[in-house]
Structures are given as C-alpha cells and as structure tokens.
Design a protein around this nucleic acid. Sequence first.
DNA 1: TGAAATGATTCGGC
DNA 2: GCCGAATCATTTCA
Length: 332
Amino acid sequence: MDQMHQLCAPYGAVLTPLTALSSSTGYNLYENAHDVQPTGVKRYEINDMLQKIMSIVNERLDDAQERKHAFNSHSMQPAFFQVLCEIKEKIAINLRHLPEDEPSDPQLMRLDNMLMAEGVSSSSSTAMNAVNASVNGTSGHGNNVDSDSALDHSDYRAKLAQIRQIYHVELEKYEQHCNDFCSHVVTLLREQSQARPITAREIDRMVDIIRKKFSSIQLQLKQSTCEAVMILRSRFLDARRKRRNFSKTATEVLNEYFYSHLSNPYPSEDAKEELARKCAISVSQVSNWFGNKRIRYKKNIGKTQEEANMYAAKIASQAARQGRSGRESPDY
DNA sequence: TGAAATGATTCGGC
DNA sequence: GCCGAATCATTTCA
C-alpha cells in the first residue's frame, strides 16, 4: 500500500481516486491485506505490478519491453488504467483552458519579411529578382558608379547566394530534427496511451508545444541570417564606400548653375531634374551637391571668389556667344 | 602619406 | 519635406 501511495503521490490527491476505484471497479483496496477481491485478485498483486512499473526505468530495453508486455497483459491493468483516468480527470491541465492558436510571433514575422525582401527565404527566381532590385535600386547613387561596380555587384550576389544556401541547409536540418523529435514523441505517447489515458488531441497538443519550443532555434537562425545580410549590405552597398567623384563636365554644369544663380542658389524641382539629366546623376545627388556647395561656399567665400569669377566670366562669354547667334541663354 | 576635396548621411529646426 | 550644419567615408592631389 505504501508503494501505491508513493507511486501516486506526484499526482496529488491519490487516496480519493483510489477509494473511488473501490466503487468504480469493484476492487476494495483498503480492506485488510488478506482480503481477496471479487475477481480473485489479491492486493499484493497490485503492489507487485506497481513495483514493476517503478523499476522499469532502470532496466535494459529488452527486459523493459518484456515487463511492459507483462504489465499490459496483467489482469489489474484495466483497473490501473481506470485509476489514472480518474486522477487525470481531477488534476490534469484542462485543454479547454489553453489557447488553441496563439498569434504569430511579431519578431519572427519581421525577420521573415526581411529575409523575403532580401531574397533569402523566397524561391530562387524571386530571390534573384530581389537581389537585383536591391543591388540596382536601393544603392540609388546615380549612374556614375555603375560602370565599375558590376564586379562588386556580382561579388555581392555570390556572397548573398552563399548566405541563402547556408540558411536553407540549416533550416532543412532544423525541420528534419524537429520532425524526427515530434514523430518520436508521437510514437512514444501512442505506446504509452495503452498504459495511461492519452487522447489524440493531447498528442497533437504536445506536438504543437514541441514545435513552438523548436521555433526558438528557427528564430535564432533567422536572426543570424539577417545580421549576415545586413553586414553584407553595409559592406557592399554603403553609398559612402562607393562614392565616386562626378565627372568634370557634370561638376562644370552644376557650378555654372550655382554661380549664375548666386543670389538664389536653390534650383527648383524642374531645374534639378534638368541638371540631373545633363549631369547623368540623380535628382537627390543634385540636391546633395547644392546643399554641400551652399555651405562650403559660405564657409570659404574668400577662397571660392576666384572660382566664382571664373564661372562668371564663362557664363558671360556663353551669353555673348548666344546673343550673337540669336539664341537665348540656357533656362533651367 | 597626409591633407584637402568631395559626395553622402544624419540630425535638428522650420 | 527642405534646408543648414556637422560628420563620415572615400577620392584626389601634392
């Protein structure tokens, strides 16, 4: 009887279900040890059975299998199963109180979106499109760097492809391990369901729990992949690292505009577009150039006077030439 | 090789 | 959203 108490102690109030066993199964466990149950099973047989259960973990697998078989075919097995059912009914976690579907992890969603945008977690063709868009589009520094950056871009693509490959290999490994572990647990629980009450829904629930635990590994993988992509991007696509001076012609065109509009060196949007077109750079580069020029002109107004005079003379001679040829000065 | 020049970015103000 | 100012990162030049 003590062993029965020890066995059931972790389950909490064991005496009640065991008492209930008396009425529900017809076995009276609490009468004296010499009593014989209605089925003819003596109380020491229960102790014997429980002893076997307790010692099963210390045994070799083959012996354990043998004992398990003995337990399953034991005449008291249905009664024991019934006791466990009643214990479970009283103390087990009620699945109805557990949320069925937890909302997706927002951090995981962000990482997924980023990996998708970077072309890491999408299909190969989509991935390459994303990579191309990222290389050609977001660098956004005009075309003055395009001619000699093709090599860098192919290097960038190669390294991104490497990251993508590592990510997929690791993800596959992770999924394999997760599936293996889940199927192992399912097999184990199904086997155990012969000895203790486990429903299919509870097994599914357990699989869900395991998958959620495993998802932290997935999160870590996605995080480190994102970090690798970020480092790669900053190394290859950082504009400041890729800075090239504008062509001499472009600088001349910008300077001509600046010094011919010295009283108000703020080109309109249309003028910026026109200058961008003439200089073969982007509008934002024109804006940057004028922003820098205004500040640096102001800072070094004495030093830049010579430059100002030079462009003033150039503009004047151009105007004179155009006047002679009957054409008006350029209007941006 | 170090200083100057230059294009881009960031940040606060309007 | 544009601008001035400060700063960064790179290129150019003596």
